[in-house]
Write a protein that binds this DNA or RNA. Structure first.
Length: 495
RNA sequence: GGUCCUUUGGCCGAGUGGCUAGGCACAGCUCUGCAAAAGCUUCUACAGCGGUUCGAAUCCGCUAGGGACCUCCA
């Protein structure tokens, strides 16, 4: 079966046919490490992590490049950080690279929490100043960029006369030229739609580099073009990022790379939609964002409690990546419960015994379960329809629970179906959707201790000493451990 | 103002013209020392108006609401 993905460039779903058979090159716009990541940022990283995992599952050798933007349009954030720290003492300034390091570390930590696989290459903008300058030089040579007062601008109008500028973002150049916005450096540009490839730096600007045009720093768009070209070549398979990057960032990327490399850079453009809050995009400019550390800890007025990274990952996967996803505490609570229930069933599946003498097979049920599993791949192939995969899993959950509670005979499913369930759930839940055990109590001593506590409670129960058994359960409950008495007389516990 | 998207049951959220997505919440029942969990059942919606069609949440038009991008933005 073949994977289809929605190509933002052609605006339709297309079968994924890699440029080089067996290989897939994928570039995803990474974070600007001038501040802490918020919930909205988590979405592309989770989305493209799933794509990465799925492509790998499909047998492709994937090179996944995700950049770290640690330079350029960074000035103001740098100042902000300075203010916080250095307000009382100017001497306590944060060194720019210190700031960058801090938020890079934090970003990596968050990605680990989300169980996102590390990219194959994670290039930084500051590490590729030379490549960016080389690219700018080429664009000047080609006649599509001009220098003014130490800054270099891309000539959009000239580009548009020959190429389809605006196709990706559905923009019309004439409209762009009409916008009456007052932007910095506007007077230097020949045209309002032109964008900076290199900006001359004022002495106060902290990060700046030597260049053929004087001291300065790279424009925002050029870093992705330079690094993608370097590591994936002039023409590569997939470029991903948030929808809000379509314009001007990705549109500009196409223009730069096209001129520099004499071909359009990307075969499939993929864009994830936004996470909203009260129907409004979560973003810095609206000041309505919740940082990831706040999400995890619950330290935010909009949250009634902290949510585990896996709950958030599951929440994201429950909606399709091209739809907006509205955040609310209530929705997160619902996802949390749902995820725990699903994972519970998954654990039960893994403990099911395959009964070879399956005399009492319920063919209809067996077929149903197999059909639901057949659809996992069909749904994933259809532009990563993770919500549908999850929905199908939930249809299987009652079957599993019923077998466990002996409401359905254990032989109702064929042995091979049970084996398949074990295989498929592990494959999809863990390997492809990238979800992990929410109960991180695999500490051995702790487990043994719990076994003892449970045993003592069982003994009290069998002595009909309910005062003691309830006391144990209530106390454990208070510290966040839930004890459940099972139908077969045993008890289980979850954190 | 321009370009585009969206509007689904109490909430979230899939939906590619025809058969109940799914989750959470609520209610009832079963199981159970109690509780929790689980199972079963109930709740069956597609902004409004008009059109196309044998048949529309799904296609077309209009109206209304919401939003995104046009500036940094995941």
């Amino acid at each position: 079966m073949a994977l289809s993905i929605y190509n933002s460039y052609t605006k339709k779903k297309e079968e994924f046919i890699p440029i080089t058979p067996g290989y897939a090159g994928m570039y995803v716009c990474g974070p600007t490490v001038s501040g802490e990541s918020h919930l909205g940022h988590a979405r592309p990283y989770v989305t493209f992590d799933v794509l990465y995992r799925y492509l790998t599952y499909k047998g492709y050798k994937v090179r996944y490049v995700r950049n770290i933007t640690d330079a350029g349009h960074f000035e103001e954030e740098g100042r902000e950080a300075e203010d916080k720290v250095g307000k009382k003492a100017k001497l306590e300034k944060l060194e720019p690279m210190e700031l960058v390091q801090k938020y890079t570390n934090l970003f990596h930590w968050a990605m680990k929490q989300f169980n996102c696989i590390e990219p194959s290459i994670e290039p930084t903008a500051t590490g590729h100043i030379v490549e960016q300058q080389e690219m700018i030089k080429k664009i000047i040579e080609e006649g599509y960029a001009y220098e003014v007062n130490g800054s270099v601008y891309f000539d959009v109008e000239k580009y548009a006369s020959k190429y389809d500028y605006g196709k990706l973002s559905g923009r019309i150049l004439d409209d762009l030229l009409e916008t009456t916005r007052q932007l910095e450096g506007q007077d230097e540009k020949r045209n309002k739609a032109d964008f900076a490839l290199w900006k001359a730096a004022t002495p106060e600007h902290i990060m700046q580099w030597q260049s053929p045009w004087g001291m300065g720093f790279p424009g925002w768009h050029i870093e992705c073009s330079a690094m993608a070209t370097k590591y994936l070549g002039p023409y590569f398979d997939i470029h991903g990022g948030g929808m809000d990057l379509q314009f001007p960032h990705h549109e500009s990327e196409i223009a730069q790379s096209t001129i520099c490399n004499h071909e359009a850079p990307v075969k499939y453009w993929m864009h994830n939609n936004m996470i909203t809050i009260n129907g409004r995009k979560m973003g810095k400019s609206y000041n309505n964002f919740i940082t990831l550390t706040e999400m995890f800890s619950g330290r935010n007025d909009l949250l009634s409690k902290g949510f585990s990274p896996m709950t958030i990952r599951f929440f994201i996967l429950q909606s399709h990546y091209r739809s907006t996803l509205d955040f609310s505490n209530e929705a997160l609570l619902a996802s949390e419960k749902a995820f725990l229930r699903l994972w519970d069933a998954y654990r039960i599946i893994q403990s099911l015994k395959t009964d070879e003498n399956s005399i009492s097979v319920d063919e209809e049920l067996d077929n149903k379960v197999n059909n639901l599993m057949d659809e996992f791949e069909i749904f994933m192939d259809d532009d990563l329809a993770t919500p549908k995969v999850i929905a199908n899993m939930f249809e299987i959950v009652p079957v599993i629970n019923s077998i466990k509670d002996k409401q359905i005979a254990s032989g109702s499913l064929k042995a091979e179906t049970i084996s398949r369930l074990q295989l498929m759930f592990r494959l999809y839940l863990e390997d492809i959707l990238g979800l992990q055990d929410p109960f991180k109590a695999d500490n051995k001593k702790f487990s043994e201790l719990m076994d003892l506590v449970i045993e003592l409670r069982s003994r009290a129960k069998s002595d009909k000493d309910y005062v003691t058994s309830d006391k144990i359960r209530e106390h454990l409950n208070k510290i966040g451990i839930v004890v459940k008495d099972e139908k077969d007389g045993t008890a289980s516990w979850t954190i």
